[in-house]
């Protein structure tokens, strides 16, 4: 059997693997509230029966073909108001893992999806436990389509679909844990100074003219992300800030 992940400092040093479970985030959260969990504990499953895509929406995946895991972190150094930085760091870790395999089509779509051109390859869902004004625990859920070949929607894709050959899940996971850890430590040591420019560089639709829908349809350019994670869009030389439900990506 495999050796435990040897290329990380703490991520994945304890692995709880479940042939099936409803949601790795829920199991990880239950472990956290039970107490005694340490940073880097990984909960992974072959088959998630009630994964959380969006609130209420399910993330569907064929068993054993994709990566579905939750990593427990303790970003006590982050104030509540800085929590989007954690999302950026994790997104970049996933991006750093897949970029050598996929190249330029790979993008991070605000706020929490991974895209290959216009198709969704995966997503990230972070759930925090707050204590006073800091984040006590974060459960970082990651789902990436790896070896699944067919999807019920044309808007989804997988590594295999893109590259044309299957991947060793364990290898992708091992690299991903390492890359997420690197970005996380980067955030811990030097704040957003490196994370933010790299995130913008890998951001879907960054600085390209596209159509958005807010109160009306408009053409704008994504110019960045503000400190609390809102999307900054320039519209006819006016800069506007959007929360998640206030704007849709059209084309």
């Amino acid at each position: 059997m495999h050796k435990i992940f040897a290329n990380t400092l703490f991520a994945g040093k304890q692995v709880i693997s479940l042939p099936t479970c409803h949601s790795t985030n829920d199991i990880a959260a239950a472990l956290v509230s039970k107490g005694g969990t340490f940073e880097g504990t990984l909960v992974i499953t072959d088959q998630q029966t009630a994964g959380k895509g969006q609130r209420g929406n399910q993330w569907e995946a064929e068993p054993g073909k994709n990566l579905t895991f939750s990593l427990i972190l303790k970003p006590g150094f982050l104030n509540i108001s800085q929590q989007f930085a954690l999302n950026m760091a994790v997104s970049l870790g996933v991006h750093d893992t897949l970029f050598p395999l996929l190249g330029d089509g790979l993008k991070v779509k605000w706020p929490n999806d991974i895209y290959f051109f216009d198709k969704k390859l995966g997503g990230i869902l972070i759930e925090n436990t707050l204590k006073n004004n800091n984040i006590e625990f974060s459960v970082v859920g990651v789902g990436i389509n790896v070896n699944q070949e067919k999807f019920s929607t044309a808007k989804a894709t997988s590594l295999t679909q893109i590259v044309g050959s299957p991947f060793e899940l364990r290898e992708v996971l091992s690299t991903m844990l390492q890359k997420i850890e690197v970005r996380y430590l980067q955030l811990k040591e030097s704040g957003e100074s490196k994370i933010r420019p790299d995130y913008l560089e890998s951001l879907y639709w960054y600085n390209e003219p596209h159509t958005f829908l807010a109160e009306d349809y408009f053409t704008g350019l994504i110019k960045g992300i503000d400190p609390i994670g809102r999307l900054i869009i320039e519209r006819e030389s006016n800069v506007q800030y959007f929360s998640l439900k206030e704007v849709s990506f059209i084309e």
Binding site: A29, S33, Q54, R55, I80, Q83, F84, L86, N87, P111, N112, L125, I126, E127, N128, T129, L130, K131, I228, G229, R230, S243, L244
Partner: peptide, 16 residues
């Protein structure tokens, strides 16, 4: 004890 969740930009925060 968790009493609610506050969500912002897809980040879910359990409030105790």
């Amino acid at each position: 004890k968790t009493v609610c969740i506050i969500e912002a930009m897809k980040l879910f925060n359990e409030i105790e």
